[in-house]
Nucleic acid binder design. Sequence first.
DNA 1: TCTATAATTGACTAATTAGTCAATTTTTTT
DNA 2: AAAAAAATTGACTAATTAGTCAATTATAGA
Lengths: 194, 194
Amino acid sequence: MKYEKQVKDKRTAIMEAALKLFTERGFHGTSTAQISKEAGVATGTLFNYFPTKEDLINSLYFEVKGRLSRSMGTGIGIESIFQERLRRLWSNSINWGVDNQEEFLFVGQFCSSPYITKYTRKEVMKEYIFLHNLVNEGIKTGESKDFSPELTIAMFYQGSRAVVSLILDSNVALDKDRLIEKGFQIIWNGLTNK
Amino acid sequence: MKYEKQVKDKRTAIMEAALKLFTERGFHGTSTAQISKEAGVATGTLFNYFPTKEDLINSLYFEVKGRLSRSMGTGIGIESIFQERLRRLWSNSINWGVDNQEEFLFVGQFCSSPYITKYTRKEVMKEYIFLHNLVNEGIKTGESKDFSPELTIAMFYQGSRAVVSLILDSNVALDKDRLIEKGFQIIWNGLTNK
DNA sequence: TCTATAATTGACTAATTAGTCAATTTTTTT
DNA sequence: AAAAAAATTGACTAATTAGTCAATTATAGA
C-alpha cells in the first residue's frame, strides 16, 4: 500500500515536472537532468520509470490525452437534445484547454512534432469515439450535414483549439464565455442544417 | 553580381537544408553540423549568415510565412463577389499547404513551440491584413455574421490547416478537391448569413 | 597584375546530453 | 528481527552540442 503510493508519487512528480518544462522549453530543450531535478529525484530514478526520454514523452501524451477525453465527455447525458450535447462537448473541450494551459500547449507541441507516429495519432483518435458517434447520430437524424465524419471532427477539434488559443492570448477573462458561444455558432451553422 | 548570386545560393542552401531537417527531426533534434552538411557548406559558413541557430529558425519562419501569405493572395481581384474571394482564399491556403508539405509542417511546429514570441505572432498576423480586410468588408455589407474578426480569422485559418492535415493523412489525391469544397461549405455556412 | 576585402573553411572547445551501474537505502516478506 | 527484494541514488561516460577563430580561398576594383 504505502509502497504503491510512493511509487505513484515519484512517477507523478516526474511527469508533472516534465509537463511543466516541456511546455516552457520544448522537448529537446529540456534535459532529463533538468526534469529529475525539478521532480526532486535522481536521474537514475527517471530512467527506472521511463526507459528512454521518448518513452516519457509518449507516456505523458497518452496520459494527458486521456484526461482531455474524459473531461470532454462529462455531463453529456443521453437525455439532452443533439444541439445541447454538441454544445456541451464544445464548451468542455475549450474549458479544459483554458483551465489546463500546460496540457493544452503540450498536446499541440507533440502533435506537430515529428515524433508523433501515425500509430499514435490513430490510437488517440479512438478516444474520440463518442464525438464520432454523436456526429454520425446527427447525420442519421438529418440534423447534421452529411460531410464525412473525419472532416467534421477535424473542423470541430481544430476550431475548439483556435478558440482556446484566442482566449489564452487575449487574457480578458470576461471574453471567455462569449468567445465559446460565438465559436459554437460558427461550428453549429457550419455543420448542421439550419 | 556574381558575388551577390553566390551569397544567395549558400544562404538559400542552408535554409532549404534546415527546413528539410527541421520537419524531419525537429528543431533541437537537428544540429547545426547536420544542417551544414546537408547544405554542403562548412559549419562556419552557417554562422556567417545566421548568428545563432535561433536566428536561423526565425528567419526561416518569416521567409516561409511570407511565401504562404503571397500564395494566399494570388488571383483575388476586386472584381469577383465576396463569396468567390473568400473561397479563393480558402483553396489557396489549402493548396499551398498540400503542395508545400515541409513548409506547412514547419509552420505548425514553430507556432506551437515555446520559442515563438508574442511579438513574432503579432508581426506575422500583419501579413494577413487582406484576410482581415475581407472579413471586415463582409461584415459591413452584411454578408458575414458580426463575430469578432479575430475569431473569424482564427476559425478560418485553423480550419484550413485541419483540411490540409486531413488531405495529407488520407493520401487519396482524388479526395482533395472534394475536401476543400466541403470544408469551405462549413466555413461559409458558419461565418455568413445564409 | 597587385592589393584589399569579403567569403569560406574545418579543427577546435567548453558545455551539455541521454543513459548506465555499482553501491546504498527503503520496503516487504518470512 | 533477519533476509530478500525492490527502489533510489549520483558519480560517471561516450557522444554530441552550438558556436569560435586563425588560416585559406575567391572576388573586386585599380
